[in-house]
Design a protein around this nucleic acid. Structure first.
Lengths: 168, 168
DNA sequence: TTTTGTCTATCTAACGTTAGATAGATTGGC
DNA sequence: GCCAATCTATCTAACGTTAGATAGACAAAA
């Protein structure tokens, strides 16, 4: 993957997490990266493809980070909480898949499938950690909701409060 | 409030809940209502004003519905859960303020203030019901997250699972 | 007669996308 | 080793469309 492609994905991820799918343009991304909009189209022929690629990379990285925590002996629920917290504190932004899921009604099928994958993989890894399906859903919902609420209230301690019931 | 204004607010609410702030246009709303885009501008001179008005009405109605439940003797947490559930089942869409909060970074100040008000009033009514601040945040976060997750997974039972820990 | 609400018509700016061209790297045949 | 062909990544320029917003005409109601 070239530097430009990485930079495009980085810029698109940041903008989607701040303003949603309809909240960014190819010209925005191009300006962020330092190329022209047509060059962004060269790598990602359509906006849907770009958003889908961003969601896929985000999910892969997220799940990998969780698995790394679990491999080190961290409880699976605590692992998910830590990676969510890191995403909030590092970037001060919403979860990418949460931001996209909030407008899932009008989302292109290709993108929705990637966002769905994030939640389904989440449920799957939590179940592999020994949780029932309902409990797994509860963990993901609480974390997404805590992140959402912390963002709008502009107070990261809200994330801690919102997710505190998950701690064993 | 005239019929047209009500119809405009209704259409805008539905579209924001489906696609977010950047996911609708004056022409969309006008077509939904059956007037011209300039007529929508007559009632709401700018898009920000329209979205802010939608959020204010949504919050007022939501809190009113919760208070009505509480007045009938329903536990305050269960009241919030019921009104969230009703919003999901009736409209099959995300919470309006949740959808806006997910993209809060790029939101106009006027709109963000209205969305913030939803969450602050939520915490306030829950605290009046006897909850600690952290517990109130936990309830709102769980409900928003459960709604979000149910929407992307296209399965309303996910809302029940996601919010089931709140039941006393 | 003024106000209210809607219309037609229009504006500028931006949208996603495409065409055509180009400079530079890579590759394959001689 | 050299030349021709191809590929990669970018550019400028423009496409048709839509965005939010505005001015002014017009009709109905107060």
């Amino acid at each position: 993957m070239t530097d430009t492609v990485t930079a495009i994905l980085d810029a698109a991820e940041e903008r989607i997490r701040g303003a949603g799918y309809h909240g960014f343009s190819f010209r925005d991304i191009a300006a962020d990266v330092g190329v022209k909009a047509s060059s962004v189209h060269y790598h990602f022929p359509a906006k849907e493809k770009l958003a889908a690629a961003v969601a896929r990379r985000y999910t892969d990285r997220f799940v990998e980070a969780v698995n790394a925590q679990v491999a080190e002996g961290t409880d699976v629920v605590e692992a998910w909480r830590r990676v969510f917290r890191a995403a909030l504190q590092r970037d001060g932004r919403m979860c990418l898949c949460g931001a996209l899921a909030a407008t899932s009604h009008e989302l292109a099928e290709e993108i929705r499938a990637e966002v769905k994958r994030f939640f389904e993989l989440g449920i799957e890894t939590l179940r592999q950690g020994g949780l029932e399906r309902a409990a797994a859903i509860r963990v993901l919902a609480a974390l997404e909701g805590a992140m959402l609420t912390a963002n709008i209230l502009e107070d990261q301690s809200v994330f801690e409060a919102g997710s505190s019931a998950l701690v064993a």
